[in-house]
Amino acid sequence: MSLAYTVERAQEIADNLTGVKAKLDEALQSKGASAQKARLVAVSKLKPASDILAAYEKTGQLSFGENYVQELEEKSKELPSDIQWHFIGSLQSNKCKVVAAIPNVFVVETVDSAKKATTLDKACAAAARPEPLRIFLQVNTSGEESKSGMLPSAVLEVAQHVVETCSHLKLAGFMTIGSPNPDLENGENPDFKALSECRTTVQDALKINGLELSMGMSDDFQRALLQGATNIRVGSTIFGSRPPFNKTAA
């Protein structure tokens, strides 16, 4: 795996990152006193490790998102150990052991059932992670059959399961992928509103605070920020279009 990058490519990525951060700052300023700064996750799936290293070295970017377990495993071995990896792809039960064994996985954003949480919890125990692994519960807020995630009605039960029975996991928040063409009411994306309501329900019922909202991507991250996102996933705007998916990277 080559980590070499050109000066031109590094500058392109740095400029793109700077542009996204400027839009985040602009959205924060428009929100006023209630604004909460969000973590920017640079989605690097299917991009070479050299792109990640360029972003890391030229801008200090630490948070990167990967969709495929094999690709994440390979990149984590080659790149700096202080990178904070976000796993944002569909997590198969037989891949939980691999993910749990990667020491600098910061959060798994795609836990979509109590069964998956239990499997990941056992994998973390077997890997002897020094601290509980942070997870987000993935919620299918739009109800689209093509999307992964539990329905909002199941969130409280799964959250309670994680908090009460998965000692090697830490419930850190919730994640959704918004509808590509939401019917905005009063300027609000209903998918983002639904995720926020899930958080309120869980925090009130389980008496916990500070749960995060991972929502917003390249096309809608500004709207997500205005609706309370604390974790934003942006890929193509930073790294450009991606090559076709190679199944061997899954």
Results as ranks from 00 to 15, higher is better:
189 N>I: 13
195 L>M: 12
156 L>T: 12
126 A>E: 13
232 I>G: 03
157 E>W: 07
151 L>S: 15
166 C>P: 04
171 L>R: 06
145 E>Q: 10
141 T>Q: 06
100 A>W: 05
91 L>I: 02
191 D>V: 11
211 L>S: 08
48 P>G: 10
167 S>Y: 09
157 E>C: 03
151 L>H: 09
130 P>I: 01
143 G>E: 12
248 T>V: 14
164 E>W: 03
243 P>S: 06
68 Y>T: 02
119 T>L: 05
30 S>L: 12
210 G>E: 02
161 H>F: 14
44 S>T: 13
208 I>C: 04
169 L>H: 04
206 L>P: 11
211 L>M: 13
239 F>W: 01
138 Q>F: 12
12 E>K: 13
176 T>H: 04
226 L>A: 14
75 K>M: 09
210 G>H: 01
130 P>Y: 02
118 T>Y: 01
247 K>N: 08
232 I>W: 12
91 L>A: 07
122 K>W: 00
209 N>R: 07
181 N>C: 10
213 L>M: 15
217 M>W: 11
145 E>F: 08
170 K>Q: 14
66 E>C: 02
181 N>E: 15
168 H>E: 04
73 E>H: 14
120 L>Q: 05
45 K>E: 06
47 K>R: 12
178 G>Y: 02
76 S>D: 11
84 Q>C: 06
83 I>S: 00
146 S>V: 13
44 S>H: 05
234 V>N: 05
249 A>G: 00
193 K>C: 07
110 T>S: 15
247 K>M: 06
63 S>L: 10
32 G>W: 08
153 S>C: 11
170 K>L: 12
104 N>Y: 07
142 S>D: 13
121 D>N: 15
92 Q>N: 08
94 N>M: 07
130 P>W: 00
173 G>R: 02
18 T>V: 08
